[in-house]
Amino acid sequence: MRITGLILILLLGGLLIYGALDFPIWGDPQSPASNHLSPYYIEHTMTDTSVPNVVTSVLADYRGYDTMFETVVIFTAGIVSFFLLRIFKKAVPESRLYRHIPTGVTLRIEKGGKVPDESNHFERIDSVWIPYDLVIRTTCRMIIPFIQIFALYVIAHGHHSPGGGFQGGVIFGASVVLFAIGFNLRQAIKQLGEKFVTFMCALGVSIYAGTGIFCVLMKSKYLDYSALAALFGTDPVTARSHGILIVEIGVGIAVMAAMIMLYYNLASAGKHDEGL
């Protein structure tokens, strides 16, 4: 298998290099890819949507359908990870570790033993024993708000600089993942529950699709944001800019929730018990 694979791959590489002989030289301004559709986008994005970042305007306005179904793909991935891995049956673990907070003593409670209540005095810790991680916890606590504000900035400022819903959503999700790693998974799930996250994921997709349906209700085409001009009280060009922002927020929410769902399910193998 290894030899057959190698021969096939070398054959493929030879064919591709033969094909690459006909490619335009790297960086050629007259290459066919840059001559047909993209000049229209670059020259008309300001007059059509008043968004200077061409990537954002093409992503959310000119090719809005593409991005909408991309968001649906992300949503599907989150749902699939849930259905593949989630185990609801609460198996009693072999032994559990608890830490007595005032003294820092770690207790190991065997199967069948009396488990202390979650209170201010006892805290459950993962079975991979971790020492007192004061530095990590304090750093996480201080850095997470800034990460979240940066994520919101990235979503909101996608019109004028690199960024947008996908990046901002992923960064926001990463802040929750950092919380789950720095503290523990149970605490993260207590803060952002599974139902809430799934709801947010569906909400993001619904915001995107709902914007399109709203445009249809305003007697225009699906995802034609200029129909929202009456709603915002602006001219159609600015309305398209605002419509892109709404759509980006929807994308951001959906991507954030999907990333958190993927992490919850993968890190605990579906048990939502002990994380990374």
Binding site: N53, V55, T56, V154, P162, G163, G164, F166, Q167, V170, I171, G173, A174, V177, I181, M259, L262, Y263, L266, A267, G275, L276
Partner: peptide, 23 residues
């Protein structure tokens, strides 16, 4: 834009998911 996405998705979340799956 692609570089930004790759930095947050490819180098950030993907690695975390990989490490989680390996563990």
């Amino acid at each position: 834009d692609v570089a930004f996405t790759e930095a947050s998705v490819g180098a950030g979340i993907s690695t975390v998911l990989f490490v989680a799956a390996v563990l």
